[in-house]
Structures are given as C-alpha cells and as structure tokens.
Design a protein around this nucleic acid. Sequence first.
RNA 1: GCUCCGUUGGUGUAGUCCGGCCAAUCAUCUUGCCCUCUCACGGCAAGGACCAGGGUUCGAAUCCCUGACGGAGCACCA
Length: 462
Amino acid sequence: MRAAPNPNGPWHIGHARMPAVIGSYKERYDGSFIVRFDDTDPETKRPDLDAYDAILDDIDYLGFEPDDVIIASDRLETYYEHARNLIDAGGAYTCSCSGETFSDLKNSGEACPHRDKDVETTMEEFEAMIDGEYSAGEMVLRVRTDIEHKNPALRDWVAFRMIDTPHPRDEAAAYRCWPMLDFQSGVDDHLTGVTHIIRGIDLQDSAKRQQFVYDYFDWEYPEVIHWGHVQVDAYDVKLSTSTLKEKIEAGELDGWDDPRAPTLKSLRRRGIRGEAVVEALTALGTSTSNVDLSMSSIYAENRELVDDEAERYFLVRDGERFEVAGGPDAGHPPLHPDHEERGERTIPATDGVVLEADDVPAEGERVWLKGYACVRREGDDLVATDDGIDVVRSGDVDVVHWAPAEDVVDVRMRSPDGDVTGVAEPDFADTAVDDVVQFERIGFARVDEHGAEESVVYWTHP
RNA sequence: GCUCCGUUGGUGUAGUCCGGCCAAUCAUCUUGCCCUCUCACGGCAAGGACCAGGGUUCGAAUCCCUGACGGAGCACCA
C-alpha cells in the first residue's frame, strides 16, 4: 500500500490517518508501505522543498518506517514511456482545445475535432510537448475513454499538460510536460505493485478514470476504498495546510508547532506520542462518510501511555499569597502516588504560600495543602490545625495544590487556548526538557525549556 | 443540471455481504458511587443509537422502493 502525499507542508492531524491505517495493515498482513510524493504540479500545487523531509519526519514521529520512498517528479521519463505506449494502443490523442471549449463539448457528449487524429500525428505532437515546444494551455494529451459516458467526469480526461513554471526541485526543473494525478498515480500504483489503495472521497472517480488506462495496458486494477474527510474538534483553525500556512505567515500562529495549530508537530511538542495519534486515528476505521475525531480520544490513548511515568508537581496559576503559621517547614508530597520509591518533593512553607483563587478558603474555613497539613484561614494567614488526614477522608476538607511564595519557578504554559502563567514548586526545576509531568489537578504538560526568565511547558491534556 | 456515495448513542466503531444468536458490541464521553492527601490512575454502576415511510418475510439495523438529510465529482489541482 502507499501513502501519496502532496508535499505542500507539514502534516496536520488528519494526514496521519493514512500512515496510521496503512502502517497497522502492513503489520497485520505483512505488507509493504510505500511513500510516494505526488508532486506533479509545479504551479498551482507548487511543492514546498522543505515539506518532503517534514512529512517523512512526521511519519517517523508516528512510529513508522516506510519500505520505500519515491518521488513522482523523478519519474517523468517513465510516465512519458507509458504515454507513448498508450498512444500506440490508440488510447490517447493530443488536443489543442481550450479548457472551456472542450468542457462545453464534453458536457453535451460531443467529441472534439482532435479525437480522430491518427497515431502518428498524436505521437509527433506529444513528443513536441515533451520537448517543450508548446506553452501552457496550448496542447494536452487526453485519454480516449467514452465521450458519451453517462458520468461527464470520466469523458476523455487530460493525462498530460504543459506547465511553464519550472519545478522547484532541481532534478525536475527542466520538464515542462507534466502528467495529471490520475495518469501518474495510476501508472505508479501498477508499477510499484500496489495491491490496495485507500483514498479520499474527493477521488472517487479516479479509479473509474484510471480503469480506462488499465484496460489499454491489460493491467489489473488494485482494490480501492474511499474514505471521508476527518474533522477534529477542539480547534478553531481549519484542518488545511494552506490555511495554516497563511496563518503562520500572517503571524497569527508562531509556527507549525504552535500549540494552537492542529498539526502533528504541535502534538509532538505537547508531549503527545505518535502511538496515541495512530491508535485514535485507526479507530476511526475507513468509512466513506465524513468523521469527527475528538481530541479526547487521542488524549485518552496518550494518558494511558504517559500517566505511569509522569512525575507530579504543583503549578499555581494567578496565586493569592498567604502566610502560614504553626505548621511544619515544608511539605513532602510524593513524585508519583503509585511509585513511592521514586521519592518525594520538598516544598518550603516558611516564607508563605500561594493558592489558586478558586482554592482560597473563606474566612474561618479549612483546606488541606496537599503533602503538608490542614490549615484554617484567618485573614491573610493560614493557620495550621491539628486535624488528621481523616478530615480529608471524610470529605469535610478539600485537598488543594499550592506553591511557596518565594523561590519558585516561573512557568509559562502554552496550550491550544493560549498561554497561562504561574509558579511551580522549586523541585520542578529538576525536570528535564522533554519530560512529561503532571501538574496535579491541572493536567499533563511537556517540559519545553528551562529558561533564565521562566520555564516553558506545553499543555498536553487533562 | 448530470453522475457517484453515504446515514447505528455527544463522538468513533462492531453488526449489514450470507435476515433470526442484536430488547444492538466496544472505546471515548457525561453522571453517580468506591479508592485516593489530584478533578490523574484504578474499580463499580448508570445514561445514550439502528434517518423517515412503505414493501417482502413467520421474522428486517440487515433485503427492495420512495423520500429527507449529508458528502463528493463533472479542472490543462492534488
């Protein structure tokens, strides 16, 4: 099977569906996984030179290693050779109608004057196309299908056209005569031994178009299934590479890995594992209707992967400061509640503490500072009580997270909903970049940077 | 306009080919309870769906017809 991306930028979440499904089928049926860059339009779908590696990088992130990587723009001579064979077989003719003219004829089921051209003339004109003797729009090579076919989409479609703009890849920059997707893809699928094709519903007519070429060559068409589009909830941004590119260029997003972008690079930076993305996407199946992917299913898969190793820390957002009277010098909650052997943290309380606004108890009420003790609010002070943990177990007192008022780590947490700032307990400075931690009662986050001014983390999921 | 395709709980999915084992599976989700010094993890429970109407049949989520709704193609884009 193959994934045939158009190299126009890094992948968004929806793109991962193809490698996710192909990769898991490959493992199940001992198949092979080809990546083929379909970059045969240097103009309107102009390839982005960085995208080839970016996409391979994304596939690697997902945890797959392609068996083969091929690039269509390396293979022009192959397509030309098959076009010559097709012409010889009477399966194609050169046509100089304007797109509009041909469209009108086609829609009324009428052949254009060029359809009856003999093979020799067609061959001469096609060689002239290859030699670049025409400009864009002057000449195309059409596949002779059935001009009266009841589906107008299948009538005598274009196989090759002229493009004046050079291809961005040096290796392909000299070519001016380019195959259309249906020709290139159809030929390559056969030549590379593809047995099963998955493609989008937007390409539902492709197999029927390509079938005409396969018939001329007496090839057997692969099994093909179509699936619908994927929408992802939880993002304001449209799932479209070109839209994302515009937003990045306009400065609305910081880059392809901005946490607000629905890209794989963004998920990776947030500490979501490729495996979780693959699991969630594979579960969508391959139905032809459009599907909505909820981020919560990716989150659920990922949480299962990271929970056991994510150390716990406290992060207090917009803290309100209180002095603490009568308690111990510090709190010592464990790094992980299920793994006491990993040790405990030390959170000093002698210089006062901060609590999140929602956690501040009313005057005279009690709250349990997790890992520390029960305190009662008396004005701007929190006075330790001699309550035991049973007041928590009985449900009388809420447990809250907290941080010292001094010597904390300033933290900026970047998330799809924007940045939030706060302070983390001192031991948070011990974490390494790339660690995924859990800020208790807030959620998981990946440590991105420990800077001089502040530490930056990326919110992973609840 | 012409031509394709689809429609199972909030979301996704199994079942549809070969009608009965489906008073419909699993996951996520939501809620409640248990566990717990986290609103994490774990455990238990509950909630919630066969697009509509006809037809065939002893019997229809499953087959047929009609309709509604939704999607896609009719490009010298991929």
